[in-house]
Write a protein that binds this DNA or RNA. Structure first.
Lengths: 192, 192
DNA sequence: CCCCTCAATGAGCAATCAGTCACCGAGTTA
DNA sequence: TAACTCGGTGACTGATTGCTCATTGAGGGG
């Protein structure tokens, strides 16, 4: 890599880093591209040299996190199907990038079809991990014979609710952390 | 009321009616005021003669529905605290104006503080009805000794999830109707 | 019949932003 | 060192949209 290529990569990474910070602070929709370029101390046009448009930017940022969660959950589920550990680990992963997922939970309905589908696809893969874990538990008679899909929607609906209304549930710090044990406890009550 | 006053009231009601239809069709944020005035066949300025701004418009529309649900639930809870009937009735009320609540579920995080607070206040009153119903059931040993708040968030989170992602769960018709029995069944499993 | 009131009008304002493009100059190559 | 490449620049464009205000004319009071 010569000087030019190094500089290009640096600029690209700078944009991603600044954009992520801004998206978390103000949400995707309320963050302007000129704000990102100003904070990154680059020209407005430079941003569009590296990313076709604003949406491509957030796709790259979100995709990295969702991919990472997916990989981690998959690794865990390959070792054992213990639902409680799976849920606990999933909540830990969410917590790590909580503020980004807060933005996601709040704004998802407003994204373009393409972006929404991409995100919901990843989401559905993770939901599927839970599905398998519960079904496996039912077969081994460890859990109640319940409507698995409903139980999962109850779970993801709750998490989404906490995330999208975070400021109501918690003044500062993590919502996921605050309600983690309660979420796990309630979910266990539902399936055990 | 003379001719003038009658006409004024008529215009106001026409605006409300057209606006509601448009908000349901395209959401609050994507509906433009000029669209509403065009569909209502009035001048753009007339809209602002009757409503200070776009937000005042949706406040009036939403407030009427929320007030109505609240009154209905309150009446029901005054007669008896049976949780299953309460939940069933609540879902019926939501279903009646489902598409308006879909808009609400999707866009709530984007409304102004004032509007959000107003809506969440009403919501919290309704949640409170459920709280009382469950607590009363626990005292009479009809339900499990559970974390009532968590159970309610599980419930409202689920309903919100179904509403905000309606197009994913149902191609046409009512999501609430489709999942009503499943919601009630799952919730009963949680508390019984 | 005249004058005043006021609901209604709609062209236009002001502000916001995503994205473009002609140009620049540092870095690379021969 | 001359010629070329290409990453970077930022003023500008075009589209959108909530809201205003000078003006109009129908309705109502005296």
């Amino acid at each position: 890599m010569n000087k030019r290529q190094i500089q290009k990569k640096k600029t690209r990474e700078l944009i991603l880093q600044v954009a992520k910070k801004e998206f978390i602070k103000k949400g995707f929709l309320d963050t302007t591209t000129s704000e990102i370029s100003k904070k990154a101390e680059i020209a407005h046009g430079t941003l569009f040299l590296h990313f076709k448009n604003k949406e491509t930017l957030i796709i790259e940022i979100l995709d990295k996190e969702l991919e990472s969660i997916n990989t981690n959950i998959f690794k865990l589920i390959s070792k054992d199907y213990n639902l409680e550990r799976l849920l606990s680990q999933y909540l830990n992963l969410l917590q790590k990038e909580e503020d980004l997922f807060v933005v996601l939970a709040r704004e998802l309905p407003f994204y373009s079809d393409k972006l929404r589908r991409k995100i919901l696809f990843r989401d559905s893969i993770i939901r599927n991990h839970f599905h398998k874990a519960i079904e496996s538990g039912i077969k081994e008679k460890r859990y109640r014979d319940i409507d698995v899909t409903s139980a999962i929607i109850f779970l993801f609906g709750t998490i989404n609710y906490y995330l999208s209304l975070k400021p109501i549930f918690v003044k500062e710090g993590s919502v996921i952390k605050k309600f983690k044990s309660s979420i796990i406890k309630t979910f266990k009550k539902l399936i055990l």
